[in-house]
Structure formats: structure tokens, C-alpha cells
């Protein structure tokens, strides 16, 4: 019905270096096939809720995993998370916060909003790669979500 390929991972990241490293780590884990990148909170919400440039997209073709940075231009990560978890259509999408912030308040608020995981980006790239690989492995392959189609 749609030309849009099914997206497996929505990566929301504004920092180009971090984005490049994240993609490199995902690539190493062979998880780069169907990644959509949003560079700010607004873009992420448009994609998720099929608005604006993504109005054509079917909302039911939800990504299997959202990797969300917290500090984002326009709409910040926590607001994006709140909107995802507040809407019944998107509530079940596994959403993982991937951030530099070690702030307790961010952690607490994220969990209160219903985040599925909270991962702090390590400085050490090897550690980062390992974390991303494990994350992808878990949420895309091992985890069973209620609406996963087989």
C-alpha cells in the first residue's frame, strides 16, 4: 500500500558525530537495513505520528525500536517520549533513551513516562558499540512485543 519501506529503527539524534558513531555501531551489528534518522524532536514526532512530510506513512507500520536522545532542538526528547507513551497507537513501541545525561532527574522522569530502557552513551567507543549491539539484539530479535507480527 505504501512506498515507504518498513522502518525497523527510528534513531533520533541531533549531534552529527554521535549520529555517525551510532550508525557505525549499528552497522557493525548489521542493524542498518531499515534505519530512519530524525534530527530533532519535531521531525521525530512527524515521523511517528505520520504528519507533515510523513503524512503518507501508515501509522500502523510502526518502527520496532526508537532510539531517542534527550537533548534535542525544537521538541526535547522527554516531550517526544511523553507523546509516544501517551498515545495508544504508539504506546507499545519499545523506546530506548540513548543519552549523555547521567542526571538522576532525567532518569526518573524518563521511567515515569514509560521508557523501556535508559542507556548512557559511554565515551569509550568500544563500550558504546557493545551497548548498541546488545540493545539491537535484544529489542529487535529477542523481545516479543504484543503487536509483533510473528
Amino acid at each position: 500500500m505504501s512506498d515507504h519501506p518498513i522502518v525497523e529503527i527510528l534513531l533520533v539524534e541531533d549531534n552529527p558525530e554521535d549520529l555517525a558513531l551510532a550508525l557505525r555501531a549499528l552497522r557493525k551489528s548489521n542493524l542498518t537495513n531499515r534505519i530512519h534518522v530524525a534530527r530533532d524532536g519535531e521531525e521525530a514526532l512527524e515521523f511517528i505520528f505520520c504528519e507533515g512530510p510523513h503524512a503518507e506513512r501508515n501509522i500502523e507500520d510502526e518502527p520496532k525500536l526508537i532510539l531517542l536522545d534527550l537533548k534535542l532542538p525544537k521538541v526535547d526528547g522527554l516531550e517526544v517520549l511523553r507523546r509516544i507513551k501517551a498515545d495508544p497507537r504508539t504506546r507499545n513501541i519499545p523506546t530506548v533513551v540513548l543519552t549523555s545525561s547521567k542526571e538522576q532527574s532525567d532518569l526518573v522522569e524518563s521511567y515515569e513516562l514509560g521508557v523501556n530502557s535508559y542507556l548512557i552513551k559511554p565515551v569509550n567507543f568500544e563500550s558504546f558499540t557493545t551497548a548498541v549491539q546488545q540493545l539491537g539484539m535484544y529489542w529487535l530479535l529477542l523481545n516479543q512485543s504484543p503487536d509483533s507480527k510473528g
Partner: peptide, 13 residues
Amino acid sequence: SHDLRAPLRAVDG
């Protein structure tokens, strides 16, 4: 927490 560590990750990465 956010901004100082990002360049470091870039350096290392």
C-alpha cells in the same frame, strides 16, 4: 553532562 562528553565520544569514536 551532555555537552562536554559528546566531543569526547567523538574523539574516541
